[in-house]
Design a protein around this nucleic acid. Structure first.
Lengths: 183, 183
DNA sequence: ACATATCTTGTACTTTAGTACAAGAGGGCT
DNA sequence: AGCCCTCTTGTACTAAAGTACAAGATATGT
C-alpha cells in the first residue's frame, strides 16, 4: 500500500554533514568499535544505502565523523585562545573553559574515544593531535613551552578522570593546580 | 581422517585464566568494542565453546579480562608504594615508575581502553577507579590530598598523550612537573 | 524535449559473530 | 564395575552487519 518514501531534494553536502554528525552521536553512545552503518543511518534519519554511497567503507565514515568533531573542537580552541589573550587571571580562565568543555560529556567522550583509538590506529593520530597539540600550542605564548606541555597533560588527565568516574571538575582546584605548573 | 583434538586435562581455573589473559591481548589489539568470542578463543588456543561454557555472555568475558588486568595493575601499585616509601627523590622515582609502566604499551592501552569504556558504562567504573584512585591514594602520604589528586591527573594525562601520539615520555621533564605540583 | 550523469532509496547477498547444545571424555564415589 | 557430575570439544542456529547493486528520480546541458 505505502509506496516508497518521497525522495529528499538532492543535497550531497547536507548528506555528508548529516552522516558525520550522526557518527559523532553514535560514537558518543556506543564507542567507535561498536559504531555501525545502520546505527549511523538510523541516527541521521537516512536510508542505509546513503552511508555506502558517500563513504566507501565504514572506516571512512567513522573517520569523517571524527574529523567533523575535531574541526568543531579546533574552532573552540581558537575561541579559548582569544579568551586567554584578554584574561586577567589566565589560570582561572582556562580552568573555567575546561569545566565548560566538560559540561557536554557526550562530546568530551568522543574526543577521548578518539585518543584511545589513535593509540592503536596510526591513521587517527593526526586527528588526535589536533586537540593535544592545539591546547599545548595555544598555551605556549602565555606560559612557555614546558609549562604548556605540563598544563596540557594536567588538563587531559583531569578531564579523563572526570569522565571515567563520572564526577565533576572543581574549577578552583583546577586553577590552583594550573598555577603551580605555571612559572 | 583426523578425529577430534585429543582432549586437554580438566582444569577450570587454567581455562578461566587463559581466557582472561587472552581477552587482555585482544583488547590491546582491537579495542573493547571489537573484542569477540572467537578472537579470544583463538588467542587462548581454546575452542569457541569454552568461552560460553565459562562465561554466560560476552560482557562477562570481557569484564573478567579487564578485572584480570586491573588486578595485575593493583599489585604493581603496591610495588610502587614500597618504592616510594624508601625513595630519596620521590618525584624522580615516580617519574621513573611511570616511564617503566609505559614501556609496555600494550598493557597501558588496555587500561585507557577501560577508562574510556567506563565513561560510557557505569558497570566498569569500579575497575577504572582501581588505578585512578589507587595512584592517588598511594601518593597521599607523600604529598597530601590535593597534590596527590593533581599529580595523578598529570600522570594520567601524560600517559594518555604519549599513547595517543606514540611518543616517549621524558623522565626528567615529568619529574620536574611532579615537583611543581608537590608542596 | 531528450539524453545523461548524479543522487536517492530499498533490498539482497555474504560474512561475521553471539549463543545454544549435543556428543563424548574423564574422574570420583559407592 | 557402574553411575553421575563436570568439563571438553565441535557444530549448528540465528541475528547483526558490511557491502553491492538495481530501479527510479532529478537536475543539467544541448
Amino acid at each position: 500500500m505505502t509506496g516508497r518514501r518521497p525522495q529528499r531534494p538532492r543535497d550531497p553536502e547536507a548528506r555528508r554533514a548529516a552522516l558525520a554528525a550522526a557518527v559523532v552521536e553514535v560514537v558518543a553512545e556506543v564507542g567507535i568499535g561498536r559504531t555501525t552503518h545502520r546505527a549511523v543511518a538510523a541516527r541521521a534519519g537516512l536510508p542505509l544505502g546513503t552511508t555506502t554511497y558517500y563513504f566507501p567503507t565504514l572506516d571512512d565514515l567513522v573517520a569523517t565523523g571524527l574529523a567533523h568533531a575535531t574541526e568543531a573542537l579546533r574552532a573552540e580552541l581558537d575561541a579559548w585562545s582569544a579568551r586567554l589573550g584578554t584574561a586577567t587571571d589566565p589560570a582561572a580562565t582556562l580552568a573555567g573553559l575546561v569545566v565548560g568543555y566538560l559540561a557536554d560529556r557526550r562530546r568530551a567522550r568522543v574526543e577521548y574515544e578518539l585518543y584511545v583509538a589513535a593509540a592503536r590506529n596510526p591513521a587517527l593520530r593526526p586527528l588526535a593531535e589536533t586537540w593535544l597539540h592545539g591546547l599545548r600550542d595555544l598555551l605556549i605564548p602565555h606560559t612557555g613551552a614546558t609549562a604548556a606541555r605540563d598544563v596540557a597533560a594536567l588538563v587531559d588527565g583531569a578531564v579523563l578522570q572526570a569522565l571515567a568516574t563520572d564526577t565533576k571538575l572543581n574549577r578552583a582546584d583546577l586553577a590552583a593546580a594550573i598555577r603551580r605548573l605555571t612559572p
